[in-house]
């Protein structure tokens, strides 16, 4: 396969469980394709050089920078964005609920990136030392909160999940 400047190729992306067949140009960043082609604007763009982490999504289950990935590279991949977290419109994922409870967000711009970074680790977070948890989310910049609420939120999410499961059973 070769794709010349200005040409588009059809790729298949599964985003939040929904298969999309979309035409992309080679240089289009995954962040732009998610936001402007597919219309999932929950993924934010803060620096486009990989330092701020606002654009972090899961690519095949692992957090990655969507601004440092060309969409065409992810042909066939499964992407999870912040829109894929909550089970329904009114229910929040335990991690989201915990962010709300612990004031883990202010302007909300960096929040989706933090949520996607925390998603694979929040269940282990209560056992992590303060230093370990801080290290696990370094690479994500927040200019509003000073991180205190974010750290508490990630640490508290598993508890919310447990109490929900308790309530169900």
């Amino acid at each position: 396969m070769a794709l010349n400047p200005g040409e588009s190729a059809r790729i298949e992306l599964t985003v939040n469980g929904i298969a999309h067949q979309i035409d992309v140009e080679a240089r289009w960043l995954l962040s732009d394709v998610l936001r402007h082609t597919i219309g999932l604007t929950g993924t934010h763009v803060g620096c486009e050089h990989g330092v701020c982490g606002c654009c972090t999504v899961l690519i095949d289950g692992e957090p990655a920078r969507s601004c440092l990935t060309f969409a065409v590279q992810t042909d066939g991949a499964a992407i999870t964005t912040v829109e894929g977290l909550a089970a329904s419109d009114d229910g929040l994922h335990p991690l989201q609920e915990s962010f709300r409870m612990h004031h883990g967000l202010q302007c909300g711009y960096c929040t989706p990136g933090f949520l996607m970074t925390a998603l694979p680790i929040y269940e282990r977070a209560p056992e992590m030392s303060d230093e370990e948890l801080r290290k696990a989310i370094s690479g994500q910049l927040c200019r509003c909160t000073g991180y205190a609420g974010i750290l508490s939120a990630i640490r508290g999410a598993a508890e919310i999940e447990r109490s929900r499961k308790g309530a169900e059973s």
Partner: peptide
């Protein structure tokens, strides 16, 4: 928060 946390901001 619910709006901002679910990507609906």
């Amino acid at each position: 928060d619910p709006r901002l946390l679910t990507g609906k901001g």
